[in-house]
């Protein structure tokens, strides 16, 4: 199972906590999937005097690891301030760092991300950066001190799956020992299984589960797909073989 900054986690599934029909259904999704990390946004909910505390207490009651995020932050300064607030609220040095670069697609701002990652790492945070699959960006993030990378599969909330398989394979090959988590863009369990087959360590889901007709069932579907994909990866799959290209003709054609 994945180890993030020396903490071993019981599941390859992380779940976001936004947009569910109710907290009761959110709790059910965690229960049925066995997800062991909950990401929680604080920027918008905090308000004055911890107005989001009742909801955060419910997340605490799930009994899973809490990974606060900086969702909704569009600048380095905003992200750093939000991370500092999250550290106080949740008493954790973990932070899922989001620096949004584009308001419509919510694409990460790679430049701001590296800068914020460096500031936060220097300040003692353990940073989980939401990034693209760009290899050079990921190298810079590792140089900045990140020991986990969370590249997107596709833009947040699209459900389009793994948009750049080549880029994701390349990332896995260049960082064989670093935990790699697909963050954002997944819509179907098969896409999560594919991420596992590429050798990724985990996936983070929110919309795919929260906006499904039956969120708890979808969460369980993803959990099973992750198990299936991971087993397949570990089992050293056969190489695909192209039977469309004929081999040398064989006498009598019995085996062509």
């Amino acid at each position: 199972m994945p180890i993030y900054y020396d903490t071993e986690i019981k599941s390859r599934l992380m779940l976001g906590t936004a947009q569910y029909p109710s907290p009761a259904i959110l709790a059910e999704a965690f229960k049925r999937s066995g997800a062991d990390i909950a990401t929680v946004s604080v920027r918008r909910e905090a308000g004055d005097e911890r107005a989001g505390q009742a909801f955060w207490d419910m997340i605490g009651d799930l009994g899973v690891h809490v990974l606060p995020n900086t969702a909704g932050c569009h600048s380095v300064r905003e992200a750093v301030t939000t991370a500092q607030m999250a550290r106080e609220l949740f008493d954790t040095s973990w932070i899922k760092l989001e620096v949004i670069g584009h308001a419509d697609t919510l694409q990460p701002d790679p430049f701001g991300l590296v800068e914020a990652a460096r500031i936060l790492t220097d300040d003692g945070f353990q940073v989980f950066p939401y990034c693209t699959e760009d290899l050079v960006l990921c190298e810079r993030l590792v140089e900045a001190g990140c020991r986990v990378l969370m590249p997107w599969g596709a833009p947040i909330g699209t459900g389009l799956g793994l948009n750049n398989i080549y880029g994701l394979r390349s990332l896995r090959a260049h960082f064989p020992d670093l935990p790699l988590v697909i963050d954002a863009g997944l819509g179907l369990p098969s896409q999560a299984a594919h991420a596992m087959e590429l050798g990724y360590d985990a996936v983070l889901l929110n919309t795919a589960v929260a906006k499904a007709g039956d969120p708890a069932a979808m969460a369980e579907g993803f959990a099973r797909a992750l198990e299936a994909g991971r087993l397949g990866f570990k089992a050293d799959p056969m190489e695909p073989r192209d039977m469309a290209a004929p081999s040398t003709p064989v006498l009598g054609r019995a085996f062509t």
Binding site: R44, E45, G47, D48, A51, G52, Q53, A54, F55
Partner: peptide, 13 residues
């Protein structure tokens, strides 16, 4: 619809 108990303050966003 925001998971917050804050009253009376609408945010610019």
């Amino acid at each position: 619809q925001i998971e917050s108990e804050e009253k009376g303050r609408a945010s610019a966003r």
